[in-house]
Computed example of a mutant assay.
Amino acid sequence: MAALLTKEQLENFALQGLSYADDHVSDPFNIRDVAERLGISYSYFYHNFVNYMGEPFWHYVKRHRLELGAGLLRHSGYNIGEISEYCGYATTAAFSKAFKLHFKESPKDFRRIIILPNENRTLQITKTITAAIGNDAFQELFNYDRCEKLRMPDSILYYSFISRGQDPIAEMIARMNTYHNLFKKMQTLYDLPQSRIITGTLDAVPVTNYEKLSMFAGLLIPTSAISAHIQLQKNHSYLATKRIAGGNYLKLPVPMDFATAGMPMYNFISMNCKEGVFKMSGNHFFISLDGPTYSEIFIPLLKKHY
């Protein structure tokens, strides 16, 4: 089989596995489930994933779940038992044991850390961006009082990984225009006025090491658009999918491109979560691309903060 496949096809198998793991983070599954979904053998999928990702599939699944759990400890109002369940662990004790082995801190102690090691880098990049444009301007724009609270419907995200590893943000910026044009054409072709072209990461910022971040661009479509989903699944099966739960969101409009808004967005989320202004219901915050110099940030909120 390997001799008949291109490098891009081999990469797609690995990335589809990564996508499956993310979309089933709370669910029990095994490697054979993923291999069967892709229509390839267990052995072929296992070795292909290691070759492309640099780590075994189940090692990635465990790391991804624990990093998402760490992100929820950081930004959500859930208790440790609720986070354990969200991350696919049968018991709080099992989650706590795995978490301490991975992070060298218990979930309870991790929650008390003021600034994470990876966060220093994120905050430094933020300072560089704000210094170039003007810190006062950013403080005025990234202000909770400018936010709008709204309800979002259950949706499905059809997406492509546009960068991963080494310098994912720089690569994402370089490739975004191509993917934005692709999804813009799909909006027109399938008549999707309620859809949004969005970008973000599957990972937990700033828990995940910068060089391991997986950045995406995609089309977010309400699940109620049934005919569109049938067409997309038929004609664009190469795209990864992710279920995005509806609910309460905070929307912050900013007059800047997605790349400029990205780091200050994280700083805005981190600061307000630490101060208890709001707490998140999940790690799936994202930026909606509404124009070359206009973006909208969407942050999932716990119901009691709505």
Score class of each variant (00 low, 15 high):
Lys97Ala: 12
Asn135Glu: 15
Tyr86Val: 00
Glu105Ser: 09
Ala261Leu: 08
Met186Cys: 06
Thr188His: 11
Pro117Asn: 06
Ser288Leu: 01
Ser106Asp: 09
Ser163Tyr: 08
Gly291Trp: 05
Ile162Gly: 08
Val277Asn: 10
Ala259Asn: 11
Gly71Lys: 04
Arg37Val: 04
Thr260Arg: 06
Asp154Ile: 00
Arg32Gly: 05
Met176Arg: 14
Ser270Leu: 11
Leu250Pro: 12
Glu296Thr: 09
Glu140Ile: 03
Val277Pro: 07
Thr126Val: 10
Leu252Val: 08
Tyr266Gly: 07
Asn120Met: 07
His64Cys: 04
Ser76Cys: 04
Gly246Lys: 07
Ala70Pro: 10
Gly39Asp: 09
Ile173Glu: 15
Thr122Ser: 10
Ala240His: 13
Ala245Arg: 14
Ala259Gln: 13
Lys304Cys: 11
Leu302Tyr: 06
Ala35Thr: 05
Ile114Asp: 14
Asn235Met: 04
Tyr294Met: 07
Ser26Trp: 09
Met265Arg: 12
Thr208His: 06
Glu119Tyr: 13
Phe286Met: 08
Leu68Tyr: 02
Gln231Arg: 13
Ala228Trp: 09
Gly276Cys: 02
Pro28Lys: 12
Thr6Val: 01
Leu5Thr: 10
Asp290Ile: 04
Ile287Glu: 05
Gln16Trp: 05
Phe298Asn: 04
Met265Leu: 12
Met263Gly: 02
Ile221Asp: 01
Gly77Ala: 10
Ser106Thr: 15
Gly77Met: 04
Leu72Val: 09
His180Ala: 13
Gln231Val: 01
Leu182Phe: 14
Thr130Ser: 07
Glu211Trp: 03
Lys108Arg: 15
Gly17Gln: 06
Asp257Phe: 01
Lys62Arg: 14
Ala98Leu: 02
Thr91Gly: 07
Ser84Val: 01
Gly276His: 05
Ala70Val: 05
Leu182Ile: 11
Ala2Arg: 15
Ser26Gly: 04
Ala131Gln: 12
Leu252Asp: 05
Gly69Asp: 08
Gly218Cys: 03
Glu36Tyr: 13
Ile80Glu: 07
Glu82Ala: 13
Ala3Lys: 15
Phe49Arg: 02
Leu4Arg: 15
Asn248Ile: 02
Met271Gln: 15
Lys274Pro: 00
Ser96Cys: 09
Glu105Tyr: 08
Met152Pro: 00
Ser195Asn: 02
Asp191Ser: 04
Ile269Ser: 01
Asn283Thr: 07
Arg63Pro: 03
Pro107Gly: 05
Glu105Met: 10
Pro107Asp: 04
Tyr238Asp: 15
His284Tyr: 10
Asp23Glu: 11
Asn248Ser: 13
Ile198Asp: 02
Asp109His: 09
Thr199Arg: 02
Leu141Glu: 14
Ser106Lys: 05
Lys279Met: 06
Ala21Asn: 06
Ala2Lys: 14
Asn177Arg: 14
Phe286Ile: 02
Gly81Glu: 10
Glu67Thr: 03
Thr199Ser: 08
Gly54Gln: 06
Thr241Gln: 12
Arg63Asp: 12
Asn235Glu: 15
Phe95Asp: 02
Ile173Gly: 00
Gln9Arg: 12
Gly77Pro: 04
Arg121Glu: 14
Glu82Cys: 04
Leu289Phe: 08
Lys234Cys: 07
Leu123Lys: 11
Phe285Met: 06
Ala170Gly: 08
Met172Cys: 10
Glu36Cys: 05
Asn248Pro: 02
Phe161Lys: 11
Ala132Tyr: 03
